[in-house]
Each structure stands twice: as C-alpha cells, then as structure tokens.
C-alpha cells in the first residue's frame, strides 16, 4: 500500500513537472526593437481654403458673380478622410474616401449694388474616392521623417446656394445640385514620431495609432462634370492637416 501511494505521488509530480520542462525547451524570441501593432489604414483631418473657379465659366463672358458677391476670399473647407492600405512594402498604397464641408457667406445685393441685410451663402460638400501612394519607406527604414505622397481621385460635390433661410431660386431655377470631377493631389507629411519617440510608442500600444503626421498638400481639382459646363467648382488649393496611421 505504501509503495502504491509513493508511485501515485511520483506520477502526479511528474505530470505536473512535464509541461514546465517542455516550456523551458521552447525558444523565446525577444524582438530587437519596440513591438509595433499592425498597420491597416489611416484617418486624415484637414482644412484649407477652397476658391471655386465659378467665374471662369465660359458662358459668363467675363462676368464675375462669385467675386461680386463673395470678393476674393475662399470658402473654409474641413475634410475627414478614411484610408485603407492594400500594399505595404516600398511605401504604402491604398484607397481613401473623404467627405468635407465648406461655406461662404456674404451680404445679398440691393438693386443699386449696395449690401442688403439679407445674407446669401454658397455651401459645398466635397466627396472624393481616391487611390494614393506614399513613400514612407525612407521614414521607417532610414529615419528621414518626410513622407511624400500623391493621390488621384474621383470627386463628387453636392452644392447649394441660400438666401436668407431658404435655397436661392432665380428665374425658376433652384440653386442646388451636384458636380462630378477628378482631382490630383501631391503633398508631403512630416512624421511626428521623431519628436517624441516614446510618446509615439505609447500612442501605439495604448490606442493602436502607429504613426502621426502633419502634412501640407496641393490639389488640382476639375469639378465641372468633366467639361460639360455649368457651375464650375474646380479649384487649385492648399490643405493642411493631421494623419493618424492605425
């Protein structure tokens, strides 16, 4: 009986010890650098001036209704873009979808040309689907914190004009619609991680934000229903913003 008990105790001890022994045999790989979470997309927030080329419409014969109403200033546009990466190697490529909003208010005009108390406004919602490529290889591999990039996209911009608190109608035509077009964008991002590497690592481990950038970009957009005429919402504009890779 004593021998059987001793055998049982030995078996239990052995069964408990075996997994531990097996674990000790497994190789533990310790990464050399900090561990980074997988990167799959980005969120981009940007703002900038948007001056539509309305006064360049040929049918206007040199008349300048935009300038006469709003002066030389631009609409302030704010945009949010969601990007999805489908290639990460020598740089990063993917598709992005952005939506924005911009508006410009001015006084309506009296018959004599003076300013009325009534306000008129042009409002836009620029939507864009684009493909992009950014050369971030140098930033990640060589430590150069500048990332040049380019985008090519399809644009659709709903727009409407108000006077007072309703949509402006003139000669029976309601002042609202949507315009198709295309846009090409080039820009450069500054990788903020280089300023506070430890904060950047915490940002990744805590929130999953791999990298953050400040950027400036220039867009060449033809938004005139591909030359079909009518209201020309084309623009050549600078935008500035923040990108968060996640």
């Amino acid at each position: 009986m004593k021998r059987a008990t001793a055998l049982g105790v030995a078996l239990v001890c052995a069964s408990a010890a075996l997994p531990a022994w097996a674990q000790e045999e497994q190789a533990v790989v310790v990464p050399e650098g900090p561990i980074e979470s997988p990167r799959s997309g980005a969120i981009v927030v940007r703002a900038g001036g948007y001056k539509p080329e309305i006064d360049k419409e040929k049918a206007l014969n040199g008349a300048t209704p935009y300038k006469d109403t709003f002066g030389e200033s631009s609409l302030l546009v704010i945009e949010l873009e969601m990007q999805r990466f489908f290639y990460q190697g020598i740089g990063t490529a993917g598709v992005g979808l952005s939506a924005g909003y911009g508006e410009k208010y001015a006084a309506a005009k009296l018959a004599g040309g003076g300013n009325a108390a009534e306000k008129t406004a042009l409002k836009l919602v620029p939507l864009q689907l684009n493909g992009f490529y950014k050369f971030d290889y140098a930033a990640f591999e060589w430590g150069i914190p500048l990332v040049p990039y380019g985008k090519l996209g399809l644009v659709y911009t709903p727009w409407w004009v108000t006077k007072g608190d309703s949509t402006n109608t003139a000669q029976g035509i309601k002042g609202s619609g949507g315009k198709w077009g295309w846009a090409a964008t080039a820009g450069v991002s500054f990788l903020l991680d280089v300023l506070q590497p430890r904060f950047a690592r915490d940002f990744d481990s805590d929130l999953g934000v791999n990298h953050s950038y400040l950027f400036a970009e220039y867009s060449y957009a033809d938004v005139d229903n591909f030359g079909a005429g009518g209201l020309d919402l084309s623009s050549r504009r600078w935008m500035f913003g923040l990108t968060l890779d996640y």
Binding site: F70, A106, T120, G175
Partner: peptide
C-alpha cells in the same frame, strides 16, 4: 435683393 444664385443666373 439678389443672392449669389441670382447674380450667377
């Protein structure tokens, strides 16, 4: 008064 749309049309 004329709004921007009036001026454009």
């Amino acid at each position: 008064s004329n709004g921007f749309w009036d001026a454009y049309i």
